[in-house]
Simulated scan of single mutants.
Amino acid sequence: MNDTRLPELPSGDEIAVRGLYRRMLEGWNRRDGAAFAGPFAVDGEVIGFDGSGHRGRSVIAAELGRIFADHATPRYVAAVRRVRALAPGVAHLEAAAGMVPDGAEELDPGLNAVQTVIAVDAGAGWRIALLQNTPARYDLRPDLTEGLTEELRAMVGRGPEPA
């Protein structure tokens, strides 16, 4: 049997990938489309909570800028679950994220999500190639929904820094 193991991700690279994710969330929480898009590769992509897609850093910045101008967007809290290498110069970050609606003190469990980031380093530093934002509904598993909500609820008020 051919056991293909993924490469190890050096700790400095893991720190860099976590930093990209943190900067992206901070941009969202500041309602700044350019800051949100800044960590993305020039041809990076976002697949949103609603399934919408945006390709290219400039398109992501413009679309998020429009959203922030037209809507009172909730702020993120997040917990990074793991960061691992997929191949040399390619990393996968998985996080659980929750959102606190504008003006609210409490998390809205209906907005909980699992976020997947694929980051690449093609020699010029790490960048986000893809953000996939998937609703964390956990159909038929209310215990998982409640557990995630409680974990994220404990993070509300601690700022945008993902754990």
Rank of each mutant, 00 (worst) to 15 (best):
M1R: 14
M1I: 06
N2V: 09
D3E: 14
T4P: 05
T4R: 13
R5P: 10
L6S: 09
E8N: 15
L9H: 01
S11V: 08
G12Y: 13
D13I: 09
E14Y: 07
I15E: 06
I15V: 15
I15R: 12
I15H: 12
G19D: 14
L20A: 11
R22G: 06
M24I: 12
M24T: 09
E26K: 13
E26N: 13
G27W: 00
W28Y: 11
R31C: 14
A34W: 06
A35E: 07
G38K: 11
F40Y: 04
A41D: 15
V42G: 09
D43N: 14
G44P: 00
E45H: 13
E45Y: 10
V46F: 06
G48P: 01
D50C: 11
G51R: 02
S52G: 14
H54D: 07
H54L: 10
R57H: 05
S58R: 04
V59L: 11
I60W: 01
A61M: 04
A61F: 01
R66A: 10
I67V: 13
I67A: 07
I67H: 04
F68Q: 09
F68G: 03
A69R: 10
A69H: 07
H71M: 11
P74V: 11
P74L: 05
Y76H: 09
V77K: 05
V77G: 03
A78R: 00
A78V: 07
V80F: 04
R81H: 11
R81P: 05
R81T: 12
R82V: 10
V83L: 04
R84I: 14
R84P: 08
R84L: 13
R84Q: 15
G89S: 06
V90M: 12
A91S: 05
H92M: 10
E94C: 07
A96I: 03
P101W: 01
G103T: 08
E105Y: 07
E105W: 07
E106F: 08
P109Y: 09
P109I: 14
G110A: 10
A113G: 03
V114D: 13
Q115E: 08
T116H: 15
T116G: 14
V117F: 03
I118M: 01
V120R: 00
A122C: 14
A122V: 12
G123Q: 07
A124R: 12
A124D: 13
A124K: 11
R127Q: 13
I128M: 04
I128S: 03
I128C: 02
L131D: 02
N133A: 14
N133W: 02
Y138A: 06
R141T: 15
R141Q: 12
P142T: 09
D143H: 13
L144S: 03
L148R: 00
L148M: 08
T149P: 06
E150Q: 11
L152F: 13
A154S: 13
M155W: 01
R158K: 14
G159M: 03
G159W: 06
P160N: 10
E161C: 08
E161K: 07
P162F: 01
